[in-house]
């Protein structure tokens, strides 16, 4: 057996491994997951992004257009421990500003990884 085939998998393996690695280093970690999409969207349901308190980010929940807002919310969630559900749509100013051209709507669930 040689190298692994590059095939899409449903689980974001590397993303969750990173979350565990940060946790083991004692970092604060939040996990953001796409839980719903309507219309076209850049990343499918189940896509994940993890972020630590030093603003290190692995994974994605969009083509890049909503990551900033998600990370900002993630910092809040890290502090309070209260999970949060974010919705980004075609009418969303932030999304338009950075060019969410896909015209879809996504819901992103943000939660803290308990230490």
């Amino acid at each position: 057996m040689s190298t692994e085939t590059a095939t899409p998998t449903i689980s974001d393996d590397a993303v969750l491994r990173q979350a565990a690695a940060w946790r083991d280093e004692g970092r604060k970690v939040a996990i953001a997951t796409v839980v719903n999409t309507w219309g076209s969207s850049p990343r499918p349901v189940g896509s994940q992004l993890v972020v630590n308190e030093k603003s290190q980010i692995v994974g994605s929940v969009s083509g890049g257009c909503i990551e900033g807002a998600v990370v900002e919310e993630a910092f809040k969630v890290m502090k309070t421990g209260e999970p949060s559900l974010l919705e980004f749509g075609v009418s969303d100013e932030l999304a338009w500003e950075v060019g969410l051209a896909c015209g879809g709507t996504v819901e992103v669930f943000v939660e803290r990884l308990e230490p």
Partner: peptide, 14 residues
């Protein structure tokens, strides 16, 4: 997410 749940997900991947 509880730490134990993350561990369960990673173990299942492995």
């Amino acid at each position: 997410m509880k730490s134990a749940h993350l561990d369960a997900l990673l173990e299942a991947q492995k």
